[in-house]
Write a protein that binds this DNA or RNA. Structure first.
Lengths: 134, 134
DNA sequence: CTTGACTCTGGACCCGGGTCCAGACTGCAC
DNA sequence: GTGCAGTCTGGACCCGGGTCCAGAGTCAAG
């Protein structure tokens, strides 16, 4: 399999070289090997892994969360992997539910706001300053 | 209206006193007034505002986002308020959509995983190490 | 009054997640 | 074999969001 250096890897995944090394220090992305010189070498698996890390980050997972997700693949026990995945799924579902609550509240406020007139007739302002956004 | 001190406020909202002062420094939560001694005084409006800040934080808004949300109430123009609220709504909807994508991928993997047997038969592991989680 | 709890300010420190050197070595093309 | 881009390590620094002092002043009950 073709291997490439850290610069290539970083560039293909759209992250900084320092970030790659930072992830390595934190146990998220070991190189597949090293040259005699010490230069890190990576392959497509690492590239995919790095992209996975980035996507997970965007979605608000911490590096620790992600380490957990990735370490699933080190597990021996398929049943444990499944359980861990279910736990993550539950997290995500809860976050979605919370965001939906906020979304619905915001939608109602927007719908109720005339978009003109006196400020104290605007339900959005009232919600922020006097009530909770629900 | 009854007013109370920073300790009361913090305790009722379930945050640390230092956090309240930190929010003040960052323009999120000015006290309604001060005693001659310099002691901050707060009322129910501040309490609600603080609770709002906390809830928004839990949902992943940065303090800057929240400052934006709160500053809506300083706007003169009701139309602008409405527009800003719509922008926030769009953000939230996008985050929900991304999380749903992840949720669906994870659900499919879990459904496809037998929960036992050889590790390389587990689609969850394969997805993490070889494909992207979708 | 005194005492103990509360609050003030300013500044140091912490953690997560990076980012940016400096100084030295390496790989490759010419 | 020289030159330049690429890479190495270690450590300093940055930002957001707090958290924790120290030292001094304040409030209220007894």
């Amino acid at each position: 399999m073709a291997t490439f250096g850290i610069g290539q890897l970083a560039q293909r995944a759209g992250v900084a070289i320092d970030t790659v090394r930072y992830y390595e220090r934190n146990g998220l992305l070991p190189p597949s090997g090293r040259l005699a010189s010490g230069y890190r070498r990576y392959g497509d698996i690492e590239l995919k892994r790095l992209r996975f890390i980035r996507r997970a980050k965007v979605l608000g997972f911490t590096l620790e969360d992600i380490r957990g997700l990735l370490s699933l693949s080190d597990e021996q026990n398929v049943a444990e992997v499944r359980t861990a995945a279910q736990g993550k799924l539950a997290d995500i579902e809860q976050r979605i539910a919370e965001l939906e609550r906020v979304r619905d509240g915001l939608r109602r406020l927007i719908a109720a706001c005339p978009g003109h007139g006196r400020a104290d007739a605007c339900p959005i302002l009232n919600a922020l300053t006097q009530e909770e956004t629900r």
